[in-house]
Amino acid sequence: MAVRQALRRAGGRLLATQGAMAPAALGVAGRGLSTSAEPITLEIPVPFKGHNVEPPSRTVETSAQELTEFFRTMFVMRRMEIAADSLYKSKFIRGFCHLYDGQEAVCVGMEAALNDKDCIITAYRDHCTHLGRGGTVLEVFAELMGRKDGCSLGKGGSMHMYNKKGGFYGGNGIVGAQTPLGAGLAFAQKYLKVEGVTLAMYGDGAANQGQLFEAMNISALWDLPVLYVCENNHYGMGTAEWRSAKSPEYYKRGDYVPGLKVDGMDCLAVKQAVKFAKEYALKNGPMVLEMDTYRYHGHSMSDPGSTYRTRDEISGVRQERDPIERIRKLLLSHEIATVAELKTIEKEAKKEVEDALAKAKESPSPDSEELFSHIYRKSYGAQAYGADRKEVVVTLP
């Protein structure tokens, strides 16, 4: 089932509506798993750091329902990315493939503070973003394998997930190029008087791109409702941040644009920061959010991810900061769920991923004429020719 269908509520996509996520929906009917929407007040452990803005409160309100959905959604995302790793190694996926495991709290926490009026545009590490925006695991797998049931009809692949209906304007393959597009989306929101913001996401490796600063400049001049979200996983394409950036304090890079540094491995911290930044942007214009996160895989599947960092470093982050384990501890310590109940959620999430993968493998490849579709907005009767200009002639749709 689509993540958004299971997890929506007004003002946040990653939560069930009242009564919609009963225990039976999680496969634990009668086991006592709490899905209460009653507020729970918690303290965010890692302080926010602000640049030209007073940081939000570290006291955040959540619920058993929200924490349970955080756990389930991140677990589905993690299993999906692990399966994608296996698919690539088995040559079901060709070309590029950039995995998101380790960074799930950024995607999930953001969505808890957003609604249908908000937009996201990101780079090529985009599988889980598509899921959070209302896409399905089937759409992701099918797109990865170039099949018809993919979110881009099997024509975009790993780097070009897309869901306009869900306000997701895609993964973009050119480093940093999505940031001025994000400014354009925010301009449209302001022009059309839509009470929403655009999150233009990029990595620390793209933070030195000139087009990012051009986008920030015009956004600040026009007070556009855009959040520039730097997913700082500390390594670009095989390069540590300190080797590529004279100042790795990315939340300060906007200069005249205020910024926040956020623990990007904590769903609740991300939720609190995005909620605060959204309210600010709707009134005052852009803000930079630096999400301090970490990727477990290499930059892409061609990168082993261990030549420029140690395996001990990776395992240390897994043990101390893993976003899924953080939520697991909260669920157990607040007696929202038992170990057995969480195992049940994990089992059902694994099955959801396995079933979607099986369906994706059965999905056919796009028809050959699809190669020429979606080139022009309207049909002008133009023709495309093969290399010899004789045997292959297709009238563009």
Rank of each mutant, 00 (worst) to 15 (best):
Q5V: 12
L7Q: 10
R9D: 10
A10G: 09
L14F: 04
L14G: 15
L15K: 07
M21V: 05
A25C: 06
L26V: 12
L33E: 10
S36P: 03
I44Y: 03
I44F: 04
P45Y: 00
F48K: 04
E54C: 04
E54A: 02
S57M: 10
T59G: 13
T62M: 05
A64G: 15
Q65E: 11
E69W: 02
R79I: 15
A84W: 03
L87I: 07
K91T: 15
F96G: 04
L99Q: 05
G102S: 03
V106K: 09
K117I: 10
I121M: 07
I121D: 11
T122V: 13
A123P: 05
E143F: 07
R147S: 02
K148L: 15
G157Q: 10
H160V: 01
G166F: 03
F168L: 05
G182C: 03
G184E: 04
A186P: 00
A188D: 13
K190V: 05
E195Y: 00
T198C: 05
G205M: 01
A206Y: 06
I218Y: 14
Y228G: 01
N233F: 00
H234Q: 03
H234W: 15
G236P: 13
T239S: 01
S247H: 10
G254M: 09
Y256P: 07
P258K: 04
G259T: 15
K261M: 14
K261N: 13
M265Q: 06
D292G: 09
D292L: 11
G305L: 01
S306P: 14
T307V: 14
T310S: 00
T310D: 00
R318E: 13
I345C: 03
A349M: 06
E352R: 07
E352I: 15
E354A: 13
F372A: 04
K378T: 13
S379L: 12
G381A: 08
Y385G: 05
E391V: 09
E391D: 12
T395W: 14
L396A: 10
